[in-house]
Simulated scan of single mutants.
Amino acid sequence: MCTSISLLLAESKELQQVANWYYKQWDSKQLNTSVSDVTTKLSSTEQRVGFVVHFNEQLAGAAEIKFNNGRCWLDGVYVDDGFRGKGLAEVLVNFAKQRAIELGWSFLNLKCEPHLVALYQKYNFEIVETHNDKLIMSCKLTADV
Rank of each mutant, 00 (worst) to 15 (best):
Q16E: 12
G76T: 01
S36G: 07
Y120S: 07
E113N: 15
L103V: 03
V128D: 15
V91Q: 15
E129D: 15
D81N: 09
K111D: 07
V49I: 10
L110Q: 07
V18C: 13
S106P: 03
Y22H: 14
E46M: 10
K66Q: 10
W26N: 02
L92W: 06
I101G: 12
L42M: 11
N20A: 11
D27N: 10
G76W: 07
T45S: 15
A118C: 04
D80S: 09
A62T: 05
V117M: 14
A118E: 12
K86F: 10
V38Y: 11
L108C: 10
F83Y: 14
Q47A: 12
N124Q: 13
Q17E: 10
N20W: 02
A89T: 02
I101Y: 14
L31D: 12
G70L: 04
K111Y: 09
T33R: 13
F107V: 11
L108R: 13
G76A: 08
G61L: 04
S44D: 10
I127K: 15
W73E: 08
V128P: 06
N68C: 05
D81P: 02
I127H: 09
S43M: 06
T33K: 14
S28Q: 10
N32V: 01
Q58W: 03
A62K: 03
K66C: 09
L116T: 01
I65C: 09
T45R: 15
D37T: 03
S28Y: 02
Y120V: 01
T33G: 04
E113M: 11
S36K: 11
W105L: 02
V53T: 00
Q16C: 09
F95L: 00
A118F: 03
R99F: 07
W26R: 06
A96K: 07
I101F: 14
V91S: 05
L74A: 10
L110G: 06
E102F: 09
Y22T: 03
A89N: 01
F51L: 04
V52F: 10
L59E: 03
D75P: 01
A60M: 08
F67M: 01
F95C: 05
D37N: 14
N132I: 00
V128F: 14
Q25N: 14
A96N: 08
F51S: 08
L74F: 07
Y22R: 15
N56D: 15
K29T: 06
C112W: 07
V117S: 12
D80E: 13
F55H: 13
C112Q: 06
L59W: 05
